[in-house]
Amino acid sequence: MLSRVADSLYWMSRYIERAEHTARLIAVKLEAMVEQSREDAESGWGRVIAALSAEQRLKGCTDTAAVVRELVFERLNESSLLSSLSFARENARQVREHLTVEVWENLNRLYLHLQSLDREENWRHNPSHLFRDALQALHALGGVTDSTLSHGEGWYFLEMGRHIERAQLVCRLLNLHFGPTQSIVPNTPTYFDWLVLLKFCSAFEPYCKVYTAAIRPEKIAEFLLFDAEFPHSVRFSIDRVCEALTRVAPAAPPGRRARVERLAGRLKASADFTQIDEVMRGSIARFLAEIADKCEQIHEAVYEAYITYGAETVL
């Protein structure tokens, strides 16, 4: 596979994951607000805004419509839903011939639809409905990607992008609930916030199946970090990344793969063999930062080995 194509597939997938994360956070938040006091609702936005890296742009803004507009439609905000989708689509367009008609059209339709909503401004009447629809469309896109595209090298680059992004996003979200983030979000999380955290990761029902409806922060952390079977846990994502790494660049010589595989192995070991009480006893913030950092290192190693390598190194 061309290095440029791998690059575009990888980023397309990261941006789609980011878009899905954004849509879910906002959908969950809008639905949760209905049951919250005004103060709680506002501090809840603080977490969402921080999770979506929009603290700077939305400093002091408490108007829900303005926040939603910024997080969803604002083009100048590079992490808004529409920006993420637009980047995903631009990447997809560059590798159009590696995608199926179904994958491209699902992505393109969703983008065009959201863009027209922005122009017409009629999303304001029923915003949570809109985000449920967008989420639905993103899930359909994921399904179509799995069921129409051959699971070859390209698909594994998509898989790698999706899960590197997901692991990092979940780490960031956990940090905002467990870490020392008082400066951003003044209140310590309440029962309700823990519930919302699970929903942010579409984890509420899967969590209850394992731990019953008793909501305990430590169990939530354990579930979202270390559950081996739940698709939005950090460990699950790391597993997927490691598998993808064994499937990409099949003809690359072993020497070229060494660094990537070493880094992936280490990351997998810490996800597989760390226990939650060790993490809770020590600094969870540091643990999360380490995971995010190792993901970043894997990203760089993959680029160096397969994508941006100098031609002189292979001639």
Binding site: M1, L2, S3, R4, A6, E153, V248, A249, P250, A251, A252, P253, R256, Y306, I307, Y309, A311, V314, L315
Partner: peptide
């Protein structure tokens, strides 16, 4: 995506040239 070495055209792929 392409480069020429010794008058042969190659594409840069993930697995090499």
């Amino acid at each position: 995506d392409l480069l020429v070495n010794d008058n042969i055209v190659y594409a840069r792929t993930t697995s090499g040239l």
